[in-house]
Amino acid sequence: MKASTLTIAILLAAASQSTMAAELDLKVTNLTKGIHFTPLLITAHNSEDTLFEVATQVSTALQTMAEGGNIAELVAQATAAGSDMAANPAEGLLAPAASTTATLSTTDGNEYLSLTAMMLPTNDGFIGLNSWKIPTEAGTYIINLNAYDAGTEQNNELVVEGSGAPGTPGIPAAPGGDAGTGGTGVLSGDTNTNIHIHPGSLGDDDLEAGNSDLSNTVHRWLNPVAQLTVTVK
């Protein structure tokens, strides 16, 4: 009896050591020249409940975020999973070159960080971090983030009001006010319906016509598109 109590105590000690809670300072910087980010969602979660997984089909919640910037469903999902989160720290859009900060206290077992935000103007592009293991050692860590394509909508590059609902084709908004109209639609042969690295926007040099409503000198980007700085206290 005594021996087994001791064993349990050791096991508990080991378990609490490996699932230690953490205090994090977070900073997200938009590195792009002409892309806005919709409300950010940053979650600390267990090894299962990431916000997304590359090369898999998106959840409806993620599709809703990637096509329209709405994080309500992702927040509900993360809440149900017992994740800790910083939702919409910038209180709206994060403009090119702008930064926002947040603090996050993680609970035992939530040892991974994930992050999402839609990129505007794109059809279903988003910035993402998938299950980054939170270091136990105090310090400052810098992570470069890439642009992903949710794989749920053809990148026709047409700005269409009200197209933020999942399944409605089009780019819901161009917050920089620098997109055009009258495009005929980019015909993309991208048939990958799983989450993949975004191939980039094409754009064109005619804001009143052409294939795309995007400007090819303003709305393209190269990776990385965002930087996350995590300070473990």
Partner: peptide
């Protein structure tokens, strides 16, 4: 478009629109 330092979006070229 804005007088600030950002990352570069890459060049377009005359063969890409």
């Amino acid at each position: 478009t804005a007088d600030i330092i950002t990352m570069h979006p890459g060049i377009v070229s005359n063969q890409d629109g």
